[in-house]
């Protein structure tokens, strides 16, 4: 310890401190700051560039995904359009068919009704004609019957008989 203290030189200590501190401050200002800043900047630059590349890649991926999605959507839309059109076509056809059927039915019904009416009218006409004919025939028969007195009296007698019976 004594030897150590004996070796200690205040002058050298003083100069070392002064020179070292001067060196420290000079280097800090003129060397270490610029060097560390440059290195930091460079590292940040590299990092940024990498980040940007990564971002670009992600964006690219997103774009691709978007494209895919749009394509898929378009496809789906086309499919749905086609489906809709098909459905519409079918429904139109079905509707038309139904309408036609109804129309046909209606026509048939009307025809039947008309036929029925005609038939009725014909029957009534026939009935009328039969009645007229029968009246004519009866007139002729009655005229023949009432041509002689005997026959008239007989008829009246017969009728009176009938009346008293009933």
């Amino acid at each position: 310890m004594e030897k150590l203290l004996g070796e200690f030189s205040i002058g050298l200590f003083f100069w070392q401190t002064v020179l070292f501190l001067a060196l420290l401050f000079l280097l800090r200002k003129y060397a270490w700051r610029p060097i560390l800043n440059a290195v930091n900047e460079r590292e940040e630059g590299i990092k940024n560039a990498l980040d940007e590349a990564e971002n670009a890649r992600k964006e690219m991926q997103n774009l691709n995904a978007d494209n895919e999605r749009i394509l898929k959507e378009a496809r789906a839309q086309r499919d749905s359009l086609l489906k809709e059109a098909r459905e519409m076509k079918e429904s139109i056809i079905a509707e038309a068919k139904g309408e036609a059927q109804a129309q046909a039915n209606k026509v048939v019904e009307q025809a039947q009704a008309t036929i029925q009416a005609e038939k009725q009218a014909a029957i009534i006409d026939i009935k009328n004609q039969i009645a007229e004919l029968s009246v004519g025939i009866a007139e002729k028969v009655v005229r023949d019957e009432l041509s002689d007195k005997k026959k008239q009296v007989k008829l009246v007698e017969e009728m009176l008989k009938e009346v008293t019976i009933s």
């Binding site: 050298l12 070392q16 020179l19 070292f20 001067a22 060196l23 003129y30 270490w32 610029p34 060097i35």
Partner: peptide, 22 residues
């Protein structure tokens, strides 16, 4: 002393070396 001179020279060397680097 000799040591002071060497310290000074090393300081000078370092200053120019790292200033050049900067």
């Amino acid at each position: 002393t000799k040591n002071v001179v060497v310290i000074f020279l090393v300081g000078l060397l370092m200053f120019f070396l790292f200033r050049g680097l900067a």
